[in-house]
C-alpha cells in the first residue's frame, strides 16, 4: 500500500506535515483506501488521512521538503471504509476524556497513545467499542455524528486522537467552532458537514464511501446516497497536512 502510493506520487508536496513522524507499523491492515481521481492529472497526492500505516510519515524521511512547490490544483479524493455512528453534542470529553490530556500530541509516542483512547469517553449506551481492547487503531475510518460535534473544550487532543486512531473524516450535521478549526489547523481529520441527519440513517459498521469532490456520501450497506456540504477552502489546508504545511506550500511562510 505504501509503495503503491509512493509510485503514484510525482510531486509529493505533502511531506511538510504537521503530523509527528513515527515509526510506521506495517503490520497493521489499513481499514480504508483512497482513490485519487486520475481523470485529472494529480499534481500531488493527498495522503493524510488515509492509511493507518501513515505513508506520509514514512515518505517524509525519503523525500526532502525542498521539493515542495506551490500549486493551486485541486485533488479529488474518496474515502472508503466502515463508519462509526454517534449522536448529537458529542463533546471533547467524550472524544478524549480529560484524564488523558497529560499526553502531549506533538510527542510521537504520546500521539499514538492518544489515538488508542479516541472516543473512550462515550457512555456505556454505545455498546460497540470504537477501538477494540489492546488495539491502538480503530477499524472505523469514518465517524458520523449529529449536530454540534466536538463541543466543549479547546483541546486539540480531540481531532488529534481521532486522526491518530485512523479516522479520515468526520461527517456531522454541524460542528463546534474550535473543533472544526483544530481539525483544519492540524489536518488530522476532514470535518465534513451533512445536509441532513445522516446519523439517523447510518449504523455503526456500514460501509461508506465519501466522494470529496462531489460532496457526496454513499452508504453501500443501505444503498443510499447523501449530499454533503462542500468543504470549501478548508479542504486544501487539511489536504496539505495543516496550516503550517499549507502556508509553506502556498508560499505564505518560507520553507525551512
Amino acid at each position: 500500500m505504501a509503495a503503491s502510493l509512493l509510485s503514484l506520487s510525482p510531486n509529493p508536496t505533502f511531506t511538510a506535515s504537521t503530523k509527528p513522524s513515527f515509526s510506521p507499523s506495517y503490520h497493521t491492515t489499513p481499514h480504508f483506501v483512497k482513490f485519487p481521481n486520475t481523470s485529472q492529472t494529480p499534481t500531488h497526492l493527498i495522503v493524510k488521512p488515509l492509511s493507518t500505516h501513515s505513508p506520509r510519515a514514512s515518505l517524509s524521511s525519503i523525500i526532502p521538503r525542498a521539493t515542495a512547490t506551490p500549486t493551486t490544483s485541486t485533488t479529488q479524493t474518496s474515502f472508503h471504509g466502515l463508519c462509526y455512528v454517534v449522536g448529537d453534542n458529542i463533546d471533547t470529553d467524550q472524544i478524549i476524556p480529560a484524564e488523558y490530556l497529560t499526553l502531549v500530541p506533538s510527542n510521537p509516542e504520546e500521539y499514538e497513545k492518544l489515538g488508542s483512547y479516541a472516543l473512550i469517553g462515550l457512555p456505556s449506551s454505545y455498546t460497540t467499542r470504537f477501538i477494540e481492547p489492546n488495539e491502538n487503531k480503530t477499524k472505523y475510518s469514518i465517524v458520523i455524528g449529529g449536530y454540534n460535534f466536538g463541543c466543549g473544550s479547546s483541546r486539540e487532543h480531540a481531532p488529534v486522537a481521532l486522526g491518530a486512531a485512523g479516522v479520515a473524516a468526520v461527517v456531522a450535521e454541524s460542528y463546534a467552532r474550535i473543533f472544526f478549526r483544530n481539525s483544519v489547523a492540524t489536518g488530522e481529520v476532514y470535518p465534513l458537514e451533512s445536509e441532513g441527519r445522516i446519523c439517523e440513517e447510518c449504523r455503526t459498521g456500514d460501509t461508506i464511501t465519501i466522494e470529496l469532490a462531489e460532496s457526496r456520501l454513499i452508504n453501500h450497506t443501505t444503498g443510499k446516497e447523501y449530499k454533503l456540504k462542500p468543504i470549501g477552502d478548508a479542504g486544501p489546508v487539511i489536504e496539505a497536512g495543516g496550516i503550517f504545511a499549507y502556508a509553506r506550500k502556498t508560499g505564505m511562510i518560507p520553507t525551512n
Binding site: 504537521t18 490530556l101 497529560t102 502531549v104 500530541p105 506533538s106 510527542n107 479547546s154 483541546r155 486539540e156 487532543h157 503550517f244 525551512n256
Partner: peptide
C-alpha cells in the same frame, strides 16, 4: 500545563 507542552512542540517544529 495541558496545552502548553504541545503548543511549544509545534512552535519548535515549525519555527525551528
Amino acid at each position: 500545563d495541558v496545552c502548553g507542552p504541545g503548543s511549544f512542540g509545534i512552535f519548535k517544529k515549525e519555527f525551528g
